[in-house]
Amino acid sequence: MVAVQYYLLLSAAIFCIGLFGILTRRNALFFLMSVELMLNAANINLVAFSFQYGNLTGQVFSLFITALAAAEVAVGIGIVLVLYRNFGDVDVTKATTLRW
């Protein structure tokens, strides 16, 4: 059986990759994908600890996180499409209407 530390390391690696993606990319679609990666890292953590302690709370919570991620992506896609219609681009640094 693989020890839980290795799953935690895997989850930390995926989370940091997603964080790196959010910090470096300017395309809104890359933002959405990086957020998906980070949510998956959180899910791996929850499921690994669920197995570690023989308790199902983590698995049920990861199901809820999956549902919230799906809703977040649905709203995010809508926002990306409106951004594209308004600014002709999905570069998040070009949406500066509320900034002066």
Partner: peptide, 21 residues
Amino acid sequence: ALALFVVLAAVFLTASFENAQ
């Protein structure tokens, strides 16, 4: 990102876990 990963890895590898139930 690398610094965050190093901190997390240090914490995880120094923590002690018993065998998985």
